[in-house]
Nucleic acid binder design. Structure first.
Lengths: 342, 342
DNA sequence: TAGATAGGCTAAATCGATTTAGTTTGTATA
DNA sequence: TATACAAACTAAATCGATTTAGCCTATCTA
């Protein structure tokens, strides 16, 4: 049994395909189709189980009402939750979302952009990887709106972005730790290649300086990017074990690292917060449930998703027309959530 | 700047669109296009940044090389991981995957099937909800291959499925608990509406019977489906607190419930495994990291994903031709992972 | 020298919609 | 009685590919 097309309906109803199309798109009244024909066509369409072919429709209209969402890793709680909000928001405007993960690989990101572009998505929300600027420029040149989330490309501020205020988040975290008397604060982060991570790292350095605490470079651990789980865990363990006496608190700059950190603390039998206090950027179920509960800097995920979607929709609606700068370049405040680990 | 189409290339190269199409699809040699023209067209295509419009291509060929994956909730670790394997497998056969979540809502599932069908996906891998049989039959009637994962519709065994052996998994878990001397085993599960959950529940009853342990109905807690997080947590707490003395072990039948369970244990200050042993169906990061680590029945997710994909690909390749029963109706063994909680 | 064959391409139909510009018929107006 | 106008549709172009059938020209064979 083949799919039902508009012309199958037309034949059965004894009218032209145009008429059926008008009826299916609620343009029947405007096109002066009689009530009787409208009813007849509608009944036949329902009876035959007609579902419009979106490929054909998209081809003709040049619009697919689909937006492409590219994140780092959809299995990660942060991105999963972001994707969910964006999908819900999109639904309000009658858009579908197709999402995919880069695994932080720029080549894969490029392929994904390509794939979505070939599928003619109307707009993009992207968590960019390194070196993706040119590809994004190409989308813009094709008049496809793009909004960045979570990461950005300063100083190229003509590409709209929505992200947490990373600098403020880490600053608040550091002030809190320092306020509680911690001075020997280790920092564990992924290799800093992109601006959002640089913002976080800068905030750490600046906080130390502002509080006249001497920087101990040995307490700053950069985990390389493509690094496998086991290696990363090993590196963290080495730092924590090797510098045990020189550390009274550990600040993890991503939730992935924080989870590894917990594993490391456990393996090394380091007690939280008695031996070391712990703070992590980004929340996670595990942090809420662990004993002790882990303090975090929380990103307002829903707000990020909503604002990103809003920025995109605006650009989709009056494509070309530059949207006011009000909705471009948004940094939303991070929230410190103190728990038992400090 | 508009997108480049095949006819833009044709014009620039001074050849017909057919020629360009042949070149772009590696049919040039078969169609006796000269080497010189091939090179010219390829260069121009690359130069202009040509990317074929998949809507047009799909419309013409009737194939999108896309498969639709419908799961319960992509944020859930189990489904996220399943989706990842399926995506990786699909790539090997040059298929793309579009995935979406039902949130266990049959109406939403129906909409998703509809949406994917309108987008002309070539085949489906579905974690079905209740009452989805008819919709799946409709896809089959349209000659679109469907493979079920994680859940199924016995006795309708003509719809291929790949899932864990739920009965065996729970049986192994129960035998392990009983072998360790536990007799007062509470069971926490979601309301049983689908066959896979019934299999798990049956295994519990049968294990008690086989071991001549009297069933205490009060130790079996069914959490209703649409139930919000907080309510579910409350229900679990009530059982654990109310029947504290009558329980020496708790078996959670899904990983979501297990996580809530941990929260409940924590709130009630019930010590694991001293006060109660804990076992959960499905693994989760939290179970590995928690103190104590939580024993689980693990599903071989990668195997499920691979086999499902394989079954689908077979059906995509010789559509219509009934595939041998060898690759339909697969139950893969579950694995008991003992940890500190028992 | 006619007919066949091969080489190198192109024209045009097609997929399933949308949309513009008509066409036809009937009724109202000048 | 011609003319305008509205009502109720329809024909055909179009989107960007794929694919079948066929058109030239040149060479080879009988």
């Amino acid at each position: 049994m083949k799919k039902v097309s508009i012309s199958d309906i037309a034949r059965k109803a004894g009218v032209s395909v145009s008429t059926v199309s008008f009826v299916m798109n609620d343009k029947a009244v405007k096109m002066r189709i009689s009530q009787e024909v409208i009813r007849r066509v509608e009944n036949i369409a329902k009876e035959m189980g007609y579902r419009p072919n979106q490929l054909a429709r998209g081809l003709r209209t040049g619009k697919t009402r689909t937006i492409g969402l590219i994140v780092e890793n959809i299995s990660n709680a942060f991105y999963a939750s972001l994707a969910k909000t964006i999908e819900d928001e999109a639904k309000k405007y009658d858009y579908k979302v197709v999402y995919c993960s880069t695994d932080n690989d720029e080549e894969k990101a490029r392929e994904l952009i390509n794939m979505l572009s070939q599928r003619q998505v109307d707009g993009y929300i992207i968590t960019p990887t390194l070196n993706l600027l040119d590809d994004i420029r190409r989308l813009q040149a094709e008049n496809k709106p793009v909004v960045l989330v979570d990461r950005y490309f300063p100083p190229h501020d003509d590409i709209p972005y929505v992200l947490v205020d990373n600098y403020q988040g880490v600053t608040d975290g550091m002030d809190y730790l320092i306020g509680k008397g911690y001075r020997k604060i280790a920092l564990i982060t992924i290799e800093v290649t992109m601006a959002h991570m640089k913002d976080r790292l800068d905030a750490y350095y600046d906080a130390l300086r502002r509080n006249r605490i001497n920087l101990n470079e040995e307490l700053v651990k950069l985990i390389p990017y493509g690094c496998v789980r086991e290696t990363a865990l090993q590196e963290i363990k080495e730092l924590l074990a090797g510098k045990r006496a020189d550390i009274d608190a550990v600040f993890f700059l991503t939730n992935y690292l924080g989870v590894l950190g917990i594993e490391a603390f456990k393996a090394l039998r380091i007690r939280i917060p008695d031996d070391m206090a712990v703070l992590c950027f980004d929340d996670n179920d595990i942090f809420r449930l662990y004993t002790p509960t882990i303090s975090v800097i929380r990103q307002p995920i829903a707000e990020i998703g909503q604002r990103a979607m809003l920025a995109l929709i605006e650009r989709l609606q009056h494509a070309g027309a530059e949207s006011g700068p009000g909705n471009r370049n948004i940094k939303v405040p991070a929230e410190l959530v103190p728990r038992e680990s400090i």
